[in-house]
């Protein structure tokens, strides 16, 4: 056991492949950025729609959020990659295929937009009604109230919860390797097949992800704290 412990902590093999692994990690980051962008755009749209005055809009957007919140990310990923192209092909009567990257970004973005729309809704609701009323009495338009009064306050309040969501999203990018996106875990599996030494490789991958997520979360929290305090009043 001591021997295997030393072997799994001996990360020279992991270090040997750093160039390949780093390229894999970069894929993770790209997919994370794409997914996060899509999730934020969708989440804002859905979050605002959930507070709409029309009940049809409200019901539809709540249904959307519940649907994507309750679907496992992996199932959604597989569904988007295998099923959606077939449906599109039949509808458009041409051959249609997603690249694994597009499928990954679409699936993760849609999946996390469900969670984030909840955060957006709570953030908007946390701004007191009087602020909106005050702005209305000053003659601001709806769009202006959103941009100048609600959004700056709501976004600051959403940030800690959104940060958790982004961490989850980054963690979810690891299983895009299952639809053959060449990310870090994909490279690790390939190198394991080649070298037949899973101990240092998988341990290394686990430690790298852990370090990145802890460091990034701390850094973002530290950087955003000042910005959040400034708008606190």
């Amino acid at each position: 056991m001591l021997g295997s412990l030393r072997e799994s902590l001996d990360l020279t093999l992991f270090w040997e492949y750093r160039a390949i692994l780093l390229r894999g990690l970069l894929e993770n980051v790209y997919i994370f950025l794409g997914g996060a962008m899509l999730a934020m755009i969708l989440a804002f749209a859905i979050g605002v729609a959930r507070l709409s005055r029309r009940w049809t809009v409200r019901v539809l957007s709540t249904g959307y959020a519940e649907l994507f919140r309750n679907t496992p990310e992996y199932v959604l990923l597989i569904w988007v990659y295998y099923v959606l192209p077939v449906i599109f092909s039949r509808l458009l009567a041409t051959r249609f295929n997603f690249s694994p990257y597009a499928a990954a970004i679409l699936a993760l973005g849609a999946s996390y937009s469900g969670f984030m729309s909840e955060t957006v809704r709570a953030g908007i609701l946390s701004v007191p009604r009087e602020h909106t009323e005050a702005a209305m009495s000053l003659g601001m338009s709806k769009w202006m109230i959103m941009r100048r009064i609600i959004a700056p306050q709501a976004i600051r309040r959403m940030l800690p919860e959104a940060l958790n969501q982004f961490v989850s999203l980054f963690k979810a990018t690891t299983f895009v390797s299952l639809i053959a996106v060449e990310d870090l875990m994909y490279k690790v599996s390939m190198i394991t097949v080649h070298e037949m030494r899973p101990l240092p490789l998988y341990t290394g991958a686990a430690l790298v992800y852990c370090a990145i997520i802890v460091a990034a979360a701390q850094l973002i929290q530290h950087l955003s704290d000042r910005w959040r305090r400034r708008g606190w009043a």
């Binding site: 961490v167 980054f170 963690k171 979810a172 690891t174 390797s177 686990a206 992800y209 852990c210 979360a217």
Partner: peptide, 8 residues
């Protein structure tokens, strides 16, 4: 908390 489930 910081290690993805798939990696674990």
């Amino acid at each position: 908390r910081a290690t993805p489930i798939f990696v674990q």
